[in-house]
């Protein structure tokens, strides 16, 4: 069991206020990502997870809000290496994700991919890619496949503010606009590409305008507010799905942790981080809203906390009890037998 099962395809209007059940689900999905990532950080600290490990803490509202516009079983998602949140939001099993982080056979890639490389065709998640920007032509290709097969699907292709300066992003924008491919490009602007701020990397920091030369509409969105993201996602997805071509959303967000586990994050002030955490936290914001709307009471929130904690604890246990891949796995999955 991962995130709660999502509703069947429907055509929500962005003006429509989501029902309380849906709001509670966003809360739970964001909390699951938060707690999962905290646990991953802890396991990393224990030496159970190695190498690169990029946590999504702080950015939960982006993928949860975007997925609110996705059609289950049809749409596709692709991203780079800060990807655990996307996997959980797509409905992938936290046990399989955590076991991949610990490099065990029960992981999504049998322990052979690691943090940056997991895939689930069943859940429409196409990775998990380690080369900054490379996921954008790949995601454009997923959009191409949706159009070629006429399945009505849209690809949500995520990139960070670092990737927007890669040339292949613009090669992709050009082809997507030229062929009106159903792709929603989501720029998760968390203000820093590793240790370099957007201002020090991008000549123009209005990243949502990066498709202007190709006639691709773009919009900035408060990526710390799941409902705002959801509304923008519905509009962007509708645009792409209706055959009008790609759409760019720039979700302004923030990562609380360093770029990866070994990053002391000296390039930003403690005040900046704590201001975002205390004033803009996506989970706290939605929690206040839920209580305000009487969508849930404190007891209900506690129950969700408990439920999420159980899922994460079970995932952590599974990830430590699942065996390492058998040595014979070294030689499998290099080629498909023809």
């Amino acid at each position: 069991m991962a995130t709660t099962p999502r509703r069947k395809p429907r055509s929500a209007k962005s003006s429509e206020v989501p029902d309380t059940e849906e709001l509670v689900r966003y809360y739970r999905d964001m909390l699951l990502i938060r707690r999962f990532e905290e646990k991953a950080g802890q396991l990393y600290g224990m030496g159970l997870i190695g190498g690169f490990c990029h946590l999504y803490i702080g950015q939960e509202a982006v993928v949860v809000g975007m997925q609110a516009a996705a059609l289950d079983g049809v749409d596709t998602v692709i991203t780079s290496y800060r990807d655990h949140g996307h996997m959980l939001a797509c409905g992938m099993d936290p046990k399989g994700v955590m076991a991949e982080l610990t490099g065990r056979i029960g992981g999504y890639s049998k322990g052979k991919g690691g943090s940056m490389h997991m895939f689930s065709l069943e859940k429409g998640f196409f990775g998990g890619h380690g080369i900054v920007g490379a996921q954008i032509p790949l995601g454009t290709g997923l959009g191409f496949a949706h159009q070629y097969s006429g399945d009505g699907g849209v690809c949500f292709a995520y990139m960070g503010d670092g990737a927007v300066n890669q040339g292949q992003v613009y090669e992709s924008f050009n082809m997507a606009a030229l062929w009106k491919l159903p792709v929603v490009y989501v720029i998760e602007n968390n203000k820093y590409g590793m240790g370099t701020s957007v201002e020090r990397a991008s000549a123009s920091t209005a990243l949502y305008q990066r498709g202007t030369a190709y006639g691709i509409p773009g919009a900035p969105v408060d990526g710390m507010d799941v409902l705002t993201v959801r509304d923008a996602a519905l509009e962007a997805a509708e645009h792409a799905r209706s055959g009008k071509g790609p759409y760019i959303l720039e979700a302004n967000t923030y990562r609380y942790r360093g770029h990866s586990m070994s990053d002391p994050a000296k390039y930003r002030s403690k005040e900046e981080v704590s201001k975002m955490r205390t004033e803009h936290d996506p989970i706290d914001q939605l929690k206040s809203k839920l209580l305000e709307l009487n969508a849930i009471d404190e007891a209900g929130l506690k129950e969700i906390d408990r439920e999420v904690k159980v899922i994460v604890t079970e995932a952590a246990e599974f990830s430590q009890n699942s065996p390492e891949p058998d040595p014979s796995e070294l030689y499998t999955d290099i080629l498909v037998d023809a």
């Binding site: 692709i78 196409f126 032509p137 790949l138 090669e171």
Partner: peptide, 16 residues
């Protein structure tokens, strides 16, 4: 080239 090689690779992931 980088764009369409990547695009085609993504399409192949999806079964084309």
């Amino acid at each position: 080239e980088m764009g369409f090689a990547g695009l085609a690779t993504g399409a192949a992931f999806k079964g084309l």
